[in-house]
Amino acid sequence: MGEIIIIGTDLKDFKKLQVNTRFYKYLGADFIIIRPFDKLNEAGIKEILKLNDYYKKQDLGFGLGFQLKDLMADLLSKPASAIDFSDPKIRKSLYHFIEYLIKHGISFFNLEVLEDLKSPSVGIFEAVRELNKNTFFNKEIISLGTFKNQSLDIRSLSNPKLPGLSLIGYKGQVRDLLKLSLNFRETGSQLCLTYTNFWQDGINFRNYPIYAKRMIYMTLFFLKSSLYVNESDLDFDDVIFLRKLFALKGKIARVRSLRKILPKESEIIAFIRQGDDEKILFLANKGQNEVLIDIGYQVMDYKDYQYLIGSYTSRSLYRNILLRPYEAVAFMRSK
Rank of each mutant, 00 (worst) to 15 (best):
I240N: 08
K69V: 05
I124D: 01
R319N: 15
F109G: 05
E126I: 08
P36T: 11
K92W: 08
K179I: 00
I33Q: 03
Y55R: 09
R129P: 04
I295M: 10
S77P: 03
H96I: 13
F14T: 13
L323A: 08
L51E: 05
Q58T: 01
E130G: 01
K251Y: 07
N204C: 10
I83R: 03
V174I: 15
I154L: 08
E42K: 13
I6S: 02
R319G: 08
N110Q: 14
I252N: 02
I168D: 01
L258F: 00
I268Q: 03
K46H: 11
T194N: 12
D153R: 12
Q18A: 10
L281D: 01
E327Y: 06
F108A: 02
L71G: 04
R155L: 15
G123T: 05
L117A: 04
M218L: 11
D116W: 02
T21A: 08
K56G: 09
L258E: 00
K92Y: 13
E130Y: 07
L11K: 14
I102A: 09
V229Q: 00
P120A: 08
E267I: 11
Q306T: 13
D74F: 08
K251N: 07
I272S: 04
L101R: 09
I240H: 09
L323Q: 04
C192P: 00
D70Q: 14
F37V: 03
I33N: 00
G250D: 15
I240W: 08
E112V: 01
F236Q: 12
K118D: 10
R319Q: 15
D53Q: 13
K179H: 13
D238M: 02
L242D: 02
F136A: 09
I48K: 01
T194Q: 14
L114P: 03
L71D: 02
Q150D: 09
L71Y: 09
L248F: 07
Y170H: 02
P263K: 14
